[in-house]
Write a protein that binds this DNA or RNA. Sequence first.
DNA 1: ATCTTATTTTGATTTAAATCAAATCAGAGC
DNA 2: GCTCTGATTTGATTTAAATCAAAATAAGAT
Lengths: 247, 247
Amino acid sequence: MPPDSLITKKLRSNIKASCSSCGLRELCLPVGLDEQEVRALDHLINQRHKIRRGEHLHRAGLDFHSLHVVRTGFFKTYVLQEDGREQVTGFHMPGEVLGLDAISADTHTCNAVALEDSEVCELPFAKLEGIGRTIPSLMHHFHKIMSREIVRERGMLLLGGMKAGERLVAFLLNLSHRFARRGYSPLDFNLRMTREEIGSYLGLKLETISRAFSRLQEDGLINVNNKRIRLNDIDHLRRQYGSSSCE
Amino acid sequence: MPPDSLITKKLRSNIKASCSSCGLRELCLPVGLDEQEVRALDHLINQRHKIRRGEHLHRAGLDFHSLHVVRTGFFKTYVLQEDGREQVTGFHMPGEVLGLDAISADTHTCNAVALEDSEVCELPFAKLEGIGRTIPSLMHHFHKIMSREIVRERGMLLLGGMKAGERLVAFLLNLSHRFARRGYSPLDFNLRMTREEIGSYLGLKLETISRAFSRLQEDGLINVNNKRIRLNDIDHLRRQYGSSSCE
DNA sequence: ATCTTATTTTGATTTAAATCAAATCAGAGC
DNA sequence: GCTCTGATTTGATTTAAATCAAAATAAGAT
């Protein structure tokens, strides 16, 4: 948690953001920019917003004008199918960009909801394209971010051939890897989402997720205590179930 | 089929491309560009390549430097899993861009093979970023193309909750829609890929695909004659099985 | 704290798809 | 044309996951 959270609390929202002093800088957009370029980016990112647990950042169908970078907290994205079922399309943690799907048609194609009290930086997309013209390395890095999102989504397709337990392990290894990059323990973390949400994301039912957790615990590979997960033998997990730990 | 295919045949490869006179223009990158901008793009796209059925356009692990737009023909992309299984990640028809996943790490993350004799236009990516700086509308359109790819991949995730027959129908409706946009019949087309490749893409076994085809034919919804498919009641298909016909 | 609701676990049963197996069919090359 | 190989269809059986159901646990609200 950032030390300024107490200070900004009363403002509720609309804090001036600053990439220059942001701890996420190396994960986020300004990777590899020099001082002057980061200042230009500070100019672009006009606002930071607080989103409380359960609040939506955007909803499918709404006009798109800004990307958002998760600064603190945790989000899930999902779409509502015609039959009313909720299909989870992703979980998003600090440093990750939300809204890339919306560029396609200037309309959000999914809903994004905070799974815990969160903060996001707003990036007006038109401004980003404008600044990108003068800072080629920023534009290039943005292209890498979009491409990475394509690779990420593709990774889900690769789960197609796997069975329940393997899918869950791939999911846990993926989370573990992303936590590690953010300086959190890759072996011991707590899930922000329910079994049902995990199941939706992985194409399985919540009971199947629960059973898969129990099975992995029986086998001594992990410890499960409700939302708290401990990976006891991450090498074994990696060996046994593909190396789907990549971002 | 383009009328110049006979002329260029003896050259085997390396034909000077020209967006200005390309029939795919409205599907491809130069959407909405004026004459002068299209000429600039002609400058960017230096080569057209012929890829024969079975030949690879690129392979996973190779250095990335160019995107490719399918001009004629049909491609499949796939990755080889550790266990040797081939996972199909997409099918690609004229006007569609290949290689967007590779921008992420300057390395191709999948293999692309021609399912029939094909032609592609080569877009050196560094040049594209350069020209994009001077033609904002081109850069913006490129962002839409990348975003569309994200949405497309996400669409696959939505199949998660569907059963075999529904997935196959969604797949057929998607192909139908893409054929229609290219001026081909949306009701009567022939598949370029095998049942096994369809199965791999949809996360099902080839026997299941075959059975699903037979079932749909029994129900009178489609006619199947090996690779030739005829949609008898596309409205019924759309109603019964979600509207996953979008690109 | 207590109540209430949502989440999770576990068991029994059903079902859809995978697997195993074999026959048929189509296409490429001779 | 014919042969051979790979692709497809169809059937029988097994298996993994969904579904149905109920109890146990955790999390929020008052």
